[in-house]
Amino acid sequence: MSYWMKSLFLLPFLLVASVHAAPLQKTFSDWQITCNNLNFCVARNIPGDNGLVMSLSRHAGGNDRPLLRIDYGNRYTGELAGGPLKDNLLLDQQRLKPDLKHWSVEPHHLATAHMISIDEFLAQVLDADNIQLTYRPQATISLHGLKAALLLMDELQGRVNGMSAWIKRGDRAAVDVPPEPEAPQMRTPGQPPTPLTRDETTGLIDFGTWRVNADECSLDPMRREVSVAPLSDEKALLLVSCEMGAYNVIDLAFEVTRSLPYVARGLTLTLPFVPPNHGDKQMELVNAEYDASRSELLTFSKGRGLGDCGNATRWQFDGREFVLAEYAEESTCDAWHGSDDWPTLWVSQRASEETVDAGAAAK
């Protein structure tokens, strides 16, 4: 079968994949790659606790905005001593001197978004074993797994056998790639709900305390905490701490009427995908916080006390249910970055007023 016939058979699959991108986080030897629901991917070497990390990121579609970075040190390590990277990098024990004409050059940080410069650098390093610092040999970037991670990135973004591919490059035009999937639109319930009165708060907390005593929670009743916030002018969100670990608290959530007689409905969070290292789409409320002014529920699960790994989510209440707005996860506990820099597996955008009005009119 000719290449063009194969391409015709492959094209529908690529178009479907571009519309329904499945998030993933995988490890290939010493490299981790994460791709979100828009097929934006970022790959980095692991572990990063030796202080030296190389990362490559790229968006899907023709406007790919690639970025290659080499960083020595982060917020966990603080400022590290030593000479500038541009003069002190070795590639397989030989001096590495990339052409830095189109790079941003700082003493311990190198970065470029210039496609030709990225291609030239990858051509130098793809088949090598490692990059390391002259003055700190243990600060090493293993290159084992880089090629496999970038090949997966090319495949997910539909670049294989095209001129924009990083690994399996071909003759297909660089712009001949599936478009970037559209981000889900998040609808808000409109005006923030009326704040709870003191009597409402007291009554709901008393009810929550009674309700928790009827549930199976490992946390001692005397140590349980109950918090309430307005969901709407008629209903409130009740959060009850149920289990506690060294640095995580698991909550139960209920939607409760704001007036007597109280009617409660248990709430569950269901993800639109199965996250890495998880068995299903059900999400526990870990270290949950609710911002009534924005109708947003936040969770933050630490993989360990340092807070350098775990997952963080943001859920939007749309007037009926909580819908996932953002999900970030770092599976590797290597003191490289905090939750604000964890790679995303799901992103969304807030619907404009025009979009919301059009949707309401259609109903």
Rank of each mutant, 00 (worst) to 15 (best):
G245S: 10
G359C: 13
A165Q: 15
G145P: 15
N130K: 12
I33M: 02
Q25P: 04
D154Q: 01
E79G: 00
Y247V: 11
A358N: 14
N74Y: 00
G158M: 09
T268A: 02
D127H: 11
D71I: 05
S241D: 04
G62Y: 14
W4F: 10
A174P: 15
T313Y: 12
L126G: 00
G162N: 15
S142T: 11
T355D: 07
K26T: 00
E255G: 00
L133I: 01
R350H: 05
Q138M: 13
K26L: 05
S55I: 10
P192Q: 02
A183S: 14
E234F: 06
I205L: 09
A139N: 12
P84I: 04
P275F: 04
T140Y: 11
T209E: 09
T188I: 12
E216V: 00
Q316D: 09
D49A: 02
G73A: 03
R198V: 11
A21H: 04
V19Y: 15
G319W: 06
T344L: 13
R187H: 08
L156C: 01
S301G: 03
R95I: 07
D341R: 04
F317E: 07
P23Y: 01
Q157V: 07
K26Y: 02
D233N: 13
S259Q: 10
E354N: 02
Q157K: 11
D30R: 01
S301N: 02
V323D: 12
H337G: 07
A328W: 05
R198E: 14
P181H: 03
Q282E: 10
A253E: 09
L324K: 06
E330P: 00
L146Y: 01
V105D: 12
V19K: 15
P98M: 07
N88I: 03
A165T: 09
K6M: 11
W31T: 03
L24N: 01
L324M: 06
F28I: 07
P192V: 02
Q282V: 00
R65G: 01
D71H: 04
R69A: 05
A362P: 07
H144L: 09
S293F: 04
S18Q: 10
V177W: 06
G82M: 06
L10G: 03
L10V: 12
I250R: 10
V323C: 03
E225T: 14
Y3H: 06
V356L: 15
L306M: 13
F317P: 10
G48R: 06
H20F: 14
L110F: 11
V274F: 08
A148F: 07
I118F: 05
K26E: 11
S7P: 07
Q132C: 12
C217E: 01
G310K: 01
L267G: 00
